[in-house]
Design a binder for these strands. Sequence first.
DNA 1: CGTGTTATTGAAGAACGTCAAGCGGGGTGG
DNA 2: CCACCCCGCTTGACGTTCTTCAATAACACG
Lengths: 239, 239
Amino acid sequence: MERLDKRETVCCGASVACESCAVRPLAVCGALPTDALARLARMTHPRRLGPGATLIEEGEPALDVFTVVEGMLKLYKLMPDGRRQITGFMIPGDFVGLSVGEAYIYSAEAVMPTTACRFRRNFFHGMMEDYPDLETRLLGIVSTELAAAQGQMLLLGRKTAKERLASFLLSLAGRLEVAAGDRLALPMTRSDIADFLGLTIETVSRTFTVLRKEGLLARVDKAGVVVADIDALARAAGD
Amino acid sequence: MERLDKRETVCCGASVACESCAVRPLAVCGALPTDALARLARMTHPRRLGPGATLIEEGEPALDVFTVVEGMLKLYKLMPDGRRQITGFMIPGDFVGLSVGEAYIYSAEAVMPTTACRFRRNFFHGMMEDYPDLETRLLGIVSTELAAAQGQMLLLGRKTAKERLASFLLSLAGRLEVAAGDRLALPMTRSDIADFLGLTIETVSRTFTVLRKEGLLARVDKAGVVVADIDALARAAGD
DNA sequence: CGTGTTATTGAAGAACGTCAAGCGGGGTGG
DNA sequence: CCACCCCGCTTGACGTTCTTCAATAACACG
């Protein structure tokens, strides 16, 4: 998915390119005519979320859709006994809340201070009718997410703890465009990482230690890591 | 997703409703005007596959898209050392081969004698431009698949062997519209089930035995099961 | 500086995987 | 027609990885 020009960005405020939101372009707005962007901008409601704040809750009526402007969200499903599976971490430009049925099928919660743009679902459907390009773009986004989900199924079903953590770090570094040798920020807790990788926090912690002792990571702390050997990390990821 | 009238079905042959293919409607064709259906029908190439035959292979150029008309396909991803994760079993009406990039991101293989309709990817994209409803329908299909993938992530990341197998049987019974007490056919091998559930064939086999001994299944054999207590099975599935 | 929260580390345990043996059904050929 | 074989499935014994439980360490915040 190509990078979009900042000027095409629709964000939290009423303007088409307000400064605080131009941090990262909204993938969904690419290739839209100016009037469509203006309509989107007018109907956008910004929402600021502190860490741990809930944006949507599984099972609630799916009245809105959202785009992440800043920060990070975690999407997750819960079992009645509290077991949790995080299905994804959403970063600026990502789209959240799409649902085929009447209810959300996952919960979304802020990992760090986060800004999301809210659109009424009905309005968004109307926009798609008026601008088929928007629907095409959305189909691409959902397809990309499906592909990621299939990769995550391979990870959860068949990879070892070490392969899982290596895959996770690589994938995040790629999405956040972190260069080799740079610090990769990990705003989520060990518990979040564990629930994303289908592990426990203890196994995640031990596996971080292994990767550091083997020299794949130069530094590991609560808030991030420094990747020392990205090729070795890719090999450790298993595919 | 509502059932569609058979007359709306586009299938393997050149006619809009050839008999052998009207087994199950193609979800993707719903709500299309007659001329669109006729165009689809003209450009459809049927493909018969014996058990084990490969329809598409991960990494190959994604030149075609397919709909399953009859039988069952398994979609899977492989790791270099041969570990396999089956990401889904596709049944009549399902859509296969959609890819955002230039290459397929998974392989697809027939589980049993299967008929698939092939469409050239470019032709299909053209159809979507001419008939936005087709794109809308496809967006719904992909969104539904994404939801299923997220459910499968919960299964793979957090469920026990027993919960996984119970979930699998329930989900398949639902999709195939098998009533309680009826026989649920399982055309795939234990190895396929294991690779779908992130288990080994031994664990799958043992877990079938457990479910039978506990009375949730009345009968278990190579080719299928009879569900004895569907409520208990739902409880065993965990959510 | 104390206190609660989060992360790390260690030891013991459980669930599932691995290895191995035996069963059974379907197909083939004598 | 039946013996044989092949392949997939089941079952048992044992091993490994990850989890669970527990204690300690590091950190954030008031």
